[in-house]
Structure formats: C-alpha cells, structure tokens
C-alpha cells in the first residue's frame, strides 16, 4: 500500500486571483462563481513527463535561425527548478517564448510596427538536468506596447511554461529584468499582493554565466509547489 501526499497551498498573497480588474482581459474571462475546492486524488498528483527525444536540435538556442544570427543583445538565461522544500525538479520540460530585440512577436496577432527578425527563433524548450538546472541562449527581448490602457507598455519579459512532476505543479509565468522602469506600471507583473513574490519574477544579473566578449547572464530560479509533509490519508492500490 502506498500513501500519497498532496501539494501545499500557496503562501497567502503570492499567487494572483483570476479576476484582476486593472488587467482588462481578466474581466470577461475570470470565473464569477467561486471555485469548488476538491481533495487531491491520484489524478492531480500524477502528470505527464517528457523525454529529451522530443526536443528539436538546438532547442535551447534562440539566437540562430535560417543560417543567420538574430539581432540584439545576446543573453544566457539559466537557473534551477526547485520545489518549495528546496529539492531540485529534474527531467522536467520547460518552454519559453518572447518578443525579439525590437519588441515584436513572430505571431499573426502582433500588429506592433516594429521589425521582425527572420533569424530569431522566438521560442525555445529544454528539459532540466538531474539537478533541476536549465540554460537558454537568447536575445534580450524588447518592451512592447499593448492595448490594456492609454500608452501601455509591457516591461521586457520572457514567458516560461513548466510542468513539474504532477498535474498539480503545472506553472506558467514570466521572467522580467532588473531595473526595468516599466515594472511599476505593469498590471500583469503587479497582480499579486505580496511584493516579495512579485520581485522574485525579476531575474538577477549573473557574472557566473556572463561570458567575456559574448553575452551577459541572467539567473532565474523557478519554484514549483512542494509536497505536504503528511499523506492525504488515502490508500492506493491493492
């Protein structure tokens, strides 16, 4: 018999609500009825896993496409995926996507009048190593305008999608850059009550991954939900 532990709830104020009125798109898309709390079952504590064989070649290098080099400032973005108990999360899929150096996405919906870069890949994927580490080589993304309010500009950011070991640990977030003057005005960045939680979305300039004459390094650790100390009290199996 196996006893299964659930996953811890978030520390108060560290996760957004679905409805955040300053973020206008949430108004017609956030649920209006209360969510129905459910206990963890085998469904939520299991989840998909992916092997390195699904990764296209050079999927962690966004700076070269069609034989040419992307325009902009090369950066290394690296870090670790850990759980709340500081344990590394190995062998888990990370996907990233971002605007190019001019602040333009290679996407039909993006009508921003900034140049596309045919040599910038725009997205990357990798799988963490046995110690939960990951590393991407990319271009520092540009800030870009959006329609949320008058003269709205998104701070420079990279979108991250991480699976972790279970359905319960799935996380999508955004990484920001230190010192960005737009952070104070961004309703998405400012969606949580807890200022320290917000600031953990800002990557840290990192000498260790900065290479002479080549690229700056930024470090961004991702923390996934940790297990409860005690099992759910449910028994699984025969």
């Amino acid at each position: 018999m196996t006893q299964l532990a659930g996953y811890r709830p978030p520390y108060p104020g560290t996760q957004p609500n679905h409805l955040h009125p300053p973020y206008v798109s949430s108004r017609k898309r956030a649920p209006t009825k209360p969510l129905v709390p459910i206990p963890f079952t085998l469904t939520e504590i299991t989840g998909p896993s992916f092997g390195t064989e699904i990764l296209p070649p050079k999927a962690c290098d966004l700076t070269r496409l069609r034989g040419g080099e992307a325009i902009g400032e090369r950066i290394v973005v690296s870090g670790r995926v850990l759980d709340e108990n500081s344990r590394p999360v190995p062998n888990t899929l990370i996907e990233i996507w971002q605007a190019n150096a001019a602040g333009r996405y290679h996407h039909e919906v993006d009508k921003h009048d900034a140049p596309l870069d045919p040599n910038f890949a725009g997205s990357g994927k990798t799988i963490t190593d046995s110690e939960g580490r990951y590393r991407f080589l990319t271009i520092r993304p540009g800030e870009y305008p959006w329609g949320n309010h008058y003269n709205a500009w998104r701070p420079a950011h990279i979108h991250f999608s991480i699976f972790g070991p279970a359905f319960a640990t799935r996380l999508v977030t955004q990484m920001f850059f230190p010192g960005d003057p737009l952070l104070a005005f961004d309703p998405i960045f400012n969606c949580t009550a807890d200022e320290k939680a917000r600031n953990r979305l800002i990557s840290v300039f990192d000498w260790e991954t900065t290479s002479p004459d080549y690229s700056l390094g930024y470090r961004f650790d991702l923390i996934l939900r940790g297990r409860e100390a005690t099992p759910m009290g449910d028994k699984l199996g025969e």
């Binding site: 957004p16 296209p56 759980d83 996907e95 997205s123 996380l171 955004q174 960045f189 996934l224």
Partner: peptide
C-alpha cells in the same frame, strides 16, 4: 525557511509561438 512557489502569470496572446510544437 522553505521556498515559495513562483507567482503565476498569464500565457498572454502569443503563447502559440512557444506551445504549438507540442500539440
């Protein structure tokens, strides 16, 4: 002192760039 889960953020309008490959 334990760590705290990273704050969730929206996928935004352009997630297809990063997520379509794994349909």
């Amino acid at each position: 002192m334990s760590l705290q889960t990273t704050t969730s953020q929206t996928v935004g309008p352009y997630f297809g760039i990063g997520m379509t490959w794994l349909i």
